[in-house]
Nucleic acid binder design. Sequence first.
DNA 1: CTGACCATACCGCTTTTGCGGTATGGTCAG
DNA 2: CTGACCATACCGCAAAAGCGGTATGGTCAG
Lengths: 259, 259
Amino acid sequence: MDTQGLKAVAPLIAAIEASASIAQLGEALAHATREMGFDSYALTHHVDMRRMRWQAIRLHDYPLDWADYYDRHGFGVRDPIHRASHLTTVGFAWPRLGELLPLSEEDEIFLERARSEGIGTGFTVPAHIPGEAHGSVSFVNAVGKPLPHAALPLAQLVGTYAFEQARRLWRLREPPHRAGNDNAARTVPRLTPRERECLVLVARGKSNWEIGRILGISDQTAALHVRNACRRYHVHKRSFLAIRALFDGSLSFIEILRP
Amino acid sequence: MDTQGLKAVAPLIAAIEASASIAQLGEALAHATREMGFDSYALTHHVDMRRMRWQAIRLHDYPLDWADYYDRHGFGVRDPIHRASHLTTVGFAWPRLGELLPLSEEDEIFLERARSEGIGTGFTVPAHIPGEAHGSVSFVNAVGKPLPHAALPLAQLVGTYAFEQARRLWRLREPPHRAGNDNAARTVPRLTPRERECLVLVARGKSNWEIGRILGISDQTAALHVRNACRRYHVHKRSFLAIRALFDGSLSFIEILRP
DNA sequence: CTGACCATACCGCTTTTGCGGTATGGTCAG
DNA sequence: CTGACCATACCGCAAAAGCGGTATGGTCAG
């Protein structure tokens, strides 16, 4: 087939992947943004920047006033655009926001405030990595300027590659970790089937007695399975056990939250 | 700019988004797969299919023998391709697998086994949604047939849109939930700053006494904050509290795992 | 300035956890 | 068939968690 059709995207992505510094990535992303027919971009982790200067990814060319207001009110975790991006793997156009989320009054006020700062409409590409803060890349147009609909798949690609490059560059800023500790964190322990069943129930907040009831075993046997699971994960508390198992993917939310 | 360049992708994506049944999606995806120069595809949740028939997404045209072997051994959660896809937002070509992950001996055996079943090389697009099972879409070629490098960005797009469409179609299969329960689950409680700090420490498996020490308050005050956080989330156990906060995004792994 | 909300601290009580053991029967690979 | 591993069950004990109170001082919006 005509894979040449993608020629137009290739140089944009190449520039993003070639960027060797955060500043260069910003330039490449800004260039791609204009090329696609947008006014500005924001590549960011969805965190409260007041608490999370350390490590959190953020790169944008939004109005500084707006960014300031945004951070002071901790919108990183409340922004309805961000919340909506947690519900989809593909990017979404902002006019369809309501289809993804019920918008609260607070959300409406927030969006109105954004418009008054010149943030009109946009397209947001989610970027999630298990165990990392949620993130997204938004491409935005001024009030009154419509979305470049033909370019949205392109924005999807550019956004995804840009976020990945941002992760690479941010990782370079980090101090290298102690290998020992790191290895301990990276090894995924193997649980026995029974231990895994108990683990799921622990994650649901069940007591050993309840687990025993559910699995049809003694509460002390259940406790032993939980203990063994803890031992394999080198943790001493069931709350942390559940977190660790979720983190390394041996447990998923659908198992926990759908009884 | 020449957004016409994306013309080649548009019909493939349109077909995927227009598919009204899982079977139709399979056809559209198979067609796109061939068009891009691949032999087969696999769109799947990374779960143990032995335990997770219910709800888990899976759609593929791999050899049935292989799929059978795969499921019987519970590779959904161990497959190194899947594990690697948890470390990136953009797709990766399988020859670069080693750059993402250290491969264990078990992994090598697994990959060798795959090759013996005709699974040569491929390109895998991750698809993660906070709170859902991890997933991915792989495009695969037979042993000896090289990857169509020019088509990889295209595969990135097709994979992402296909996974999203699969989510939509699978959602239709689900029985509609009770509105009441659902609302309770969807409301994100607002915690006070102190409660949030305690919550993070709970997720790290700290005891109330330790939390008190860390925050410089009494252990009983820490306990009270934890209790209040539990109250807001309508949960009775701290292990579940941490999970729920992670699930709704008020907590992220980087906060928990980076002290 | 008043009421709402928060952070702080303490008490007492019951239940649950976490940790140390031991022991029996089953399965499965070497 | 033997040893490794698992699931099962039990005991005991110290620590922690969960739940019910009450109380004081601070902040901030209406």
